[in-house]
C-alpha cells in the first residue's frame, strides 16, 4: 500500500510541469499551427489592384481552373530579381504564386513573375 502511495505521489510530481505548461485552450494551439501552403504556377487572367487580388489560370491538360488569390501588405512580388508592383502584372504573364488558405480565402505570400511564355 505504501509502495502504491509513493508511486502515485511521484507520478503527480512528474506531471505538474506538464500541466502548468499546457495551454488553457487546445483549440488555440490547433489554430496557431502554420496553415498549409499551396503553390500554383499559371497564367495571370486578371489583376485588381484596388482589391489587391489576382486570378490565375491553372489546370491539368485541357481541364483548366481559375485560382483566386488575395495579396497582403506582406506579399512579396518578384520578377527576375526586381520587385514589381501588383499593377505591373498583366493578363498573359506566367507567375508562380505561393500562398496559404485562410478564413478570408487564399492569401499569397510570394508571387514571382516568370520569364517564359513571351511571344
Amino acid at each position: 500500500m505504501r509502495r502504491m502511495i509513493r508511486t502515485a505521489a511521484l507520478t503527480a510530481i512528474l506531471l505538474v510541469p506538464l500541466v502548468i505548461s499546457a495551454p488553457a485552450n487546445w483549440g488555440a494551439l490547433t489554430s496557431a499551427q502554420p496553415a498549409p501552403s499551396y503553390t500554383y504556377q499559371g497564367t495571370v487572367r486578371a489583376v485588381n489592384v484596388r482589391a489587391g487580388t489576382l486570378e490565375l489560370i491553372t489546370g491539368v491538360g485541357m481541364s483548366l481552373r481559375v485560382v483566386r488569390l488575395k495579396t497582403a501588405p506582406t506579399t512579396r512580388l518578384v520578377a527576375a530579381g526586381a520587385a514589381p508592383r501588383l499593377a505591373d502584372l498583366k493578363p498573359g504573364d506566367v507567375v508562380r504564386a505561393e500562398g496559404r488558405r485562410t478564413a478570408a480565402g487564399l492569401v499569397a505570400d510570394r508571387v514571382e513573375k516568370l520569364a517564359v511564355g513571351a511571344r
Binding site: G42, T43, V60, M62, L64, G117
Partner: peptide, 25 residues
Amino acid sequence: HFVDGRIGRFGRKGFVPTLREFNAG
C-alpha cells in the same frame, strides 16, 4: 506553351506538355 509556361505538344493546338497530363485532363 501551357498556362504554366512549359512547352506544349498534345492537342490540336499543341497546348498540353505531357501525355500524362493530357490523359488526366
